[in-house]
Each structure stands twice: as structure tokens, then as C-alpha cells.
């Protein structure tokens, strides 16, 4: 039998550390909140986590391709304001469906704008999507200058309270996303994506359509941001043009905790999903541990820094022993 090798596990499964972290976080959370696996508690947690999970999946695809997307929160805001103003608190389900599709279209368009500038004009991703994030949040504020509007409570409740076979709706959504990802990963496009993220120059030399692959990652991110926007609108039931802004940096943290390197070409989408759930659980633990409110931000941020540092610390300690 082969001996267990930490290095091999870390190399072969970038999400390995994320899963350990999730198990630790879940255990602590379970001690603090013994009913956390009861159907309603689980559902009320998962429906809060889902928007960030969806956002992290889109972010992960961009990062795998070697880029970064600072505008995802802006796209969430656009979708939220479209739904809150166009469907309205008394809108019909048909109207909701119509504007769900409009929202998805808007997300894809916003992603295509990012992709155009980055892939075709060869601009630097971080500054480009920073610029477009101003465009998108500005546009959301243009649609809805002050918080207000919303979607009907019955429609919001479909998202909040649907638990097929006693499992949260979020589980099914995550399941579908992961299945689609596994399929994409197995196609030629999947290989192209990793090739571009790993070494774009080399990928170009071997006739990979680098420009189109890069472009597609931002479109995918726009699409996932739209889904996240729809989810968070159904969760909150109301409109606010600033709703997506704090979600951007969280999505990037989730991707990195999930073992997908910011340098591109390493990792996957399952890790970031685990990372996003872990971040949510950490927030839960902090709310339940009754630490002084003044200390909450500090404790949470410190836990995240330690989580980010842990793989590096383990590597350093191991290297010393050898």
C-alpha cells in the first residue's frame, strides 16, 4: 500500500485543504448549534450561501482562465434592480419569468463587454473589470436610485422554502452546476481553458483559440453573476443597487480558499463551492459564539487570513523536517 502523501494530495486535489477546513468549520458550528442539520436550519443557511456560491463558480472560471472579475458584484446589482423595478411587489409569475430571462441576458451582455475589452483589446483584467464595475453599479443606481421595489412574497418564498425530498433547493442547484462543470471539464473546451490559464503563450502556439476562450470565461462569469443576482433578489425580496458590491471580494476569497490559484490554470469549481460554504459557516460560528460585536470583524478576518496562510505554513514546517 502506498503511504499517504500530503504533497501528492495537495497537488492532485487542490480542494483537499478546503474540505478539511469545511469539516472543521462544520464541526465547530455543530457544537455551537446542535440543530444545524435539521431541515429548516440547513435550508435557511443554504439559501443565504447560494448567491455567493453561484458567484464564486463564475469567478472561478475566470480565474482558471488566468483573469479576475471585479465587476461581478455590479452585475448582481443590475439584475437585482431590474427585477425589483420591473417585476414589482405585485407582479405575476409570468412577468417574473420574463425578467429572469432579461436579467440573464443582461448578465451575459455585461460579461461580453468585459470579455471584449480583455480578450480582444488585450486590456489588463483587474483594471478593466474595475472600470466596468463602476459602469455596472452606476447603471444599477440609474435604474433604482434609492433602495425599494421588490418581487412578490409568493415568488420569493418559492426560493426560500422549497425543500424537495427534505433537502434544500440550494443542494439541487449546486448539484446541477457541478454536473454541468464536470461535463465542460471533459470537453475539448475544458482542456483549452486550463491551457490558457496555465500558459496563454504556449496555448496560442498550439493553436488554442486563446482569445475566444478568454472571452468565454467572462461571459460565463456574467451568466453566473446573473444567476447569483436572481438568487439574492429572491432571498431578500427587495431591490438595492448596492446589494452586490460587497459580494465581489467575498467571491474571490472563496475561490482562493477553495484551492484555485489566482495565477490561473490550477484548481476547479468544486473547491470554490466548498470555499464559499466555509466562509458562510465561519460567519455562522461568529454569530453563535457571542463574541463582543466590536470584535466580530477582527475575528472573522483573522480566521480567514489564518485559513489562507495554513497551507503555506504546513508546507514551511514540512520542508524544515526534511
Amino acid at each position: 500500500m502506498k503511504r499517504f502523501s500530503w504533497d501528492e494530495m495537495m497537488n492532485r486535489y487542490p480542494a483537499f485543504f478546503a474540505i478539511i477546513l469545511l469539516v472543521v468549520a462544520l464541526t465547530i458550528n455543530f457544537i455551537l448549534q446542535p440543530n444545524m442539520f435539521a431541515r429548516d436550519t440547513l435550508n435557511s443557511n443554504m439559501r443565504v450561501f447560494l448567491p455567493i456560491i453561484l458567484l464564486s463558480v463564475g469567478q472561478a472560471i475566470v480565474i482558471l482562465g488566468g483573469g479576475i472579475d471585479i465587476s461581478v458584484g455590479g452585475i448582481v446589482s443590475i439584475v437585482n434592480t431590474i427585477l425589483a423595478t420591473q417585476v414589482g411587489l405585485n407582479g405575476s409569475p409570468e412577468k417574473m419569468w420574463t425578467f429572469v430571462f432579461v436579467s440573464i441576458g443582461a448578465g451575459i451582455l455585461a460579461g461580453a463587454i468585459n470579455g471584449f475589452f480583455i480578450a480582444f483589446l488585450r486590456l489588463q483584467p483587474i483594471i478593466t473589470t474595475y472600470a466596468t464595475s463602476f459602469l455596472y453599479v452606476g447603471f444599477a443606481l440609474f435604474i433604482l436610485p434609492n433602495p425599494g421595489g421588490g418581487i412578490p412574497a409568493e415568488i420569493a418564498n418559492v426560493y426560500r422554502n422549497t425543500t424537495p425530498l427534505g433537502l434544500p433547493l440550494a443542494f439541487y442547484v449546486i448539484g446541477v452546476v457541478l454536473l454541468v462543470w464536470m461535463y465542460i471539464r471533459s470537453t475539448r473546451y475544458g482542456n483549452y481553458l486550463y491551457a490558457v490559464g496555465g500558459n496563454a503563450e504556449a496555448a496560442y502556439e498550439t493553436a488554442v483559440p486563446v482569445t475566444w476562450v478568454l472571452f468565454s470565461t467572462y461571459v460565463a462569469s456574467g451568466f453566473m453573476s446573473a444567476l447569483a443576482g436572481i438568487a439574492i433578489t429572491m432571498l431578500s425580496g427587495s431591490g438595492n443597487a448596492e446589494i452586490g458590491v460587497p459580494m465581489t471580494l467575498t467571491s474571490i476569497t472563496a475561490v482562493v480558499i477553495g484551492g484555485t490559484a489566482l495565477s490561473g490554470g490550477v484548481g476547479g469549481v468544486a473547491g470554490p463551492v466548498v470555499g464559499a460554504i466555509t466562509l458562510g459557516i465561519i460567519q455562522n460560528i461568529i454569530s453563535f459564539s457571542r463574541i463582543d460585536t466590536w470584535w466580530e470583524t477582527f475575528v472573522k478576518a483573522s480566521i480567514i487570513v489564518v485559513a489562507l496562510a495554513a497551507p503555506g505554513i504546513i508546507n514551511l514546517l514540512r520542508r524544515k523536517k526534511v
Binding site: A261, K300, S302, I304, G312
Partner: peptide, 22 residues
């Protein structure tokens, strides 16, 4: 620790904000 500058300084920003609040 080979943490990417983006996330290291982002995490640090959270810690410093926490310190400010305290």
C-alpha cells in the same frame, strides 16, 4: 507562505478594519 498578494492584502485589509472597529 506564498499567498497571492491580492488575497493576502485583502485579508489584511479585513484584519485592519477589525482593529479600527475595536
Amino acid at each position: 507562505l506564498k499567498i497571492s498578494p491580492f488575497v493576502m492584502t485583502l485579508g489584511m485589509s479585513g484584519v485592519v478594519t477589525g482593529l479600527i472597529i475595536i
